[in-house]
Design a protein around this nucleic acid. Structure first.
Length: 193
DNA sequence: CAAGAGATCATCT
DNA sequence: GATGATCTCTTGA
């Protein structure tokens, strides 16, 4: 069952936790890719110094200010795209970063795109998974009900998870230590570090 | 194996 | 003109 917009309208931290164990689906003319979400991070709003929207509404962060259930895809370090799903009410900028998935379907395509045969290296990181799933800024702003990109609930219960501080946000003052990163416990497909 | 550098560009100052 | 919600490769022990 495809998650509806109302799912994403819940508090960001809840969405980040609830997404664990759900399935990320990417439809593509080359073939579909599916992965089980095993790692997420919550970026909870304008007061969160690690959240891009803390700097205000700009061309880049515009999507986060829109309604929930849209993809926020941005380009970073000159190389990588990052996939987020916008949460909460319109005009309240918050999102969940999808950091890692366990490949479930379309592995051959992922291997080609990643130039790697190692299953554990296909989508175990936010940049890697965007590469494996062919997600780039052309998907920025797409609606999760449009069908090219969405999350599916297959009804197999909530996995046990851990929380840690978020990765790569040392600049975020007191927000850098908040435990807003969530990982499926014991899963080998989470990002390293 | 751990640590460090380099790659490379859109966005904001 | 600086910098980043990263990854990979090289280096050195």
């Amino acid at each position: 069952m495809k998650l509806s917009r109302s799912f994403y309208e819940q508090p960001t931290i809840d969405v980040a936790k609830l997404l664990l164990g759900k399935f990320l689906v990417r439809k593509h003319s080359d073939g579909d890719s599916i992965g089980r979400i095993v790692e997420t991070e919550a970026y909870v709003g304008p007061q969160d110094l690690a959240c891009h929207a803390a700097k205000g509404r700009t061309k880049r962060t515009d999507v986060m200010f829109g309604p929930a259930g849209h993809a926020y895809v941005y380009f970073i370090y000159g190389f990588y795209n990052m996939l987020n799903l916008v949460t909460e009410a319109k005009d309240y900028p918050a999102a969940v970063l999808i950091r890692a998935v366990e490949p479930v379907k379309g592995m051959e395509l992922m291997k080609q795109r990643r130039r790697s045969d190692e299953l554990g290296n296909l989508a175990s990181g936010p940049g890697k998974l965007c590469q494996a799933f062919a997600i780039d800024r052309s998907l920025n702003g797409v609606d999760v009900s449009d069908g090219v990109l969405y999350v599916e609930d297959r009804g197999d219960g909530a996995p046990k998870f851990l929380s840690t501080a978020r990765i790569g946000v040392d600049y975020a003052g007191k927000w850098k230590d908040k435990r807003l990163r969530f990982l499926v416990r014991g899963n080998e497909f989470v990002s390293k570090r």
